[in-house]
Design a protein around this nucleic acid. Structure first.
Lengths: 344, 344
DNA sequence: TACGCTTTTTGCAGCGCTGCAAAGCAAAGC
DNA sequence: GCTTTGCTTTGCAGCGCTGCAAAAAGCGTA
């Protein structure tokens, strides 16, 4: 493997200093057209490519941002990641992705122990196993934007949607269609379940607003928000003496799992049990039945997260940590409204 | 922000040379216990963390591998990526992920133009828009493993399953359950559609093996393998004078889209139309009905790809490019077998 | 022609680490 | 006592690029 062409090689051929070549390559101002052309020609002739590693070291930055999510195969995250990658690319950043499996140690390693620090200039982080306190004890020099769980403590930005309002809206939709026994699947009544708890709060607020008392035995906890969890929880609910006639699920995956259980018991959605999900993943737009859901504006969440992170990376004095709220809307589909002739 | 602690700082405190500290930090042999301890203590006292950027430059490698896929939100890829990340991590590699949206220019940039070269030591690549020829004109110094499309030209490894055999098996299953008019959704009769063409070949072979002539108008091309494509193709098929009574779909997403269309027309799966998919993504295990599918051994594909890539990275003389075949099996579910619990 | 000012180009000193080869040193052999 | 052998430790020269500050070159004006 022949030695790589360096700045110096180009400089020699073009008859200028290596610093000038660097200036041309990086598009700095204050280079005469004549010089620029000469250098350009030498660059092409030698097939010069900047050495990213050397540049990184000299600049003390890597041009990469990391996105850390619990599970990559969760459609919500992969759809979100897609937008993050596109947005970051526009600003010249590569995206380094890692999944933690929700393991607190692994999550901690990413934002605290600095072993990989410098490999990325900032992190967009979706915690699952780390509580507020662990999050606070992180490396404070690391620009950080948090998604989903945890609210900001002022030292980082948090991007999400208004979970309480969204959940309330979803629940009110079920109440308003005349359902009397509404279940909730996905509560997580412990330190790391902030988002789940916000959704439960919205669920309760909706009941309160309509003057109803929710049945506590219909609020089901699940360890994660995936299909098996939903299927399992629904089995339990259907085995009750007075099973629910509607379910608010804290993710579309949970909803799909629940629907699967309902249908395989020979019951109908929405006639026997109406179902609302959360996240608006593509699955829910093509399932049978299609799933009514809370649709967060993922594009905006991704764009906002990247934008805030780059701002943090670029500013010498860290900007204040903001609580940023993206819009959401309730999308009504078959799982609460009966079948329509053609899929949409 | 205080200056980072360097090797030299540690060396000074421990009273040894910086090279020795380096040796200790990297766990090289031939360091006396006494020295090791002394250095270790200094490292901890100062909170020293190696500077990855500097190490990368000095070593001329980055410790990262890139995985390039067309679409991150395709469950098949995100499930596969999950395994790749886990496997790579064990060997001390970070995974840099990028999606190309199937854009040939973008794909090319990754494996040919070297602008990001050095940022990763090797690439696991799932091409979509690049044909065999474009693939051949890549940077041959870049260790490469290809997934899915394209077979190896001897200069890189290709990992996949036996598409022809799998497709044949899926189609035979439909024939053997007595279906007469079997459609195929997902053919791509152009240079970049190798995998699709292999599946079509298997589809034809199955017919030939049973002495049947497939109806050409039931072989439908689709630009991609996603839900909308499947839904759309199915609409066309159902509008035919003699619509099919079975469909072999080239991905589970296509199958889910097709099923959605069938069901929303008031027809039943599998009674009116039986459906087989490909990939065995989680969606198909919880959909209504669940989807019969070809299940590639994703764990093994991921493990093999990473293993071969690391081998390439580590060897000075490039090993021969192999054609590696992971096992698969046909998993029969409701979409070809009727509902399990309570039929409706 | 000289002077002050702006624009362009240059030289050099690192960034923090590792490869290489030589130096140091202790135990073993003559 | 002196050389040989084998393990430890060291010094130094980069890796290829950019930040900084100073030098050089233009340029308009006195």
């Amino acid at each position: 493997m022949r030695r790589e062409v360096t700045l110096r090689d180009v400089a020699e051929l073009a008859g200028v200093s290596s610093r000038t070549v660097s200036n041309v390559v990086n598009g700095y101002a204050n280079v005469t057209e004549r010089t620029r052309e000469r250098v350009q020609r030498a660059v092409e002739q030698l097939g010069y490519r900047p050495n990213v590693l050397a540049r990184n070291l000299a600049q003390g930055r890597s041009g990469q941002i990391a996105v850390v999510v619990p599970y990559l195969d969760t459609p919500y995250f992969s759809e979100l990641l897609q937008s993050v990658i596109r947005t970051a690319r526009v600003s010249g950043y590569n995206v380094l992705i890692d999944q933690t499996d929700g393991d607190p140690e692994h999550e901690r390693a990413f934002i605290a122990d600095g072993s990989r620090r410098l490999l990325f200039d900032g992190v967009i982080f979706s915690p699952l196993g780390l509580d507020q306190q662990a999050l606070a004890s992180r490396d404070h020099n690391l620009p950080l934007v948090v998604l989903g769980e945890r609210s900001s403590d002022g030292s980082f930005d948090h991007v999400g949607i208004d979970d309480v309002a969204a959940s309330r809206q979803a629940t009110e939709h079920l109440i308003d269609m005349g359902r009397k026994r509404i279940a909730a699947i996905g509560d997580q009544p412990y330190a790391t379940g902030e988002a789940a708890q916000r959704r439960t709060r919205g669920f309760r607020e909706a009941h309160a607003a309509r003057g109803i008392t929710p049945r506590e035995d219909l609020i089901i906890s699940t360890p994660r928000f995936n299909r098996p969890d939903g299927a399992h929880a629904m089995e339990h609910l259907l085995s009750l003496a007075e099973p629910p006639d509607a379910v608010f699920c804290y993710s579309d995956l949970v909803a799909l799992g629940a629907i699967r259980t309902i249908v395989s018991r020979g019951l109908r959605v929405p006639e026997d049990v109406a179902v609302v999900g959360y996240d608006d993943i593509e699955d829910g737009r093509f399932s049978n039945p299609t799933v009514t859901t809370i649709s967060p504006d993922k594009e905006m969440i991704a764009a906002t997260a990247v934008e805030r992170l780059l701002l943090r990376i670029r500013s010498s004095t860290p900007p204040p940590g903001l609580e940023l709220c993206a819009p959401h809307r309730l999308i009504i589909r078959e799982s609460t409204a009966g079948r329509t002739p053609t899929a949409r």
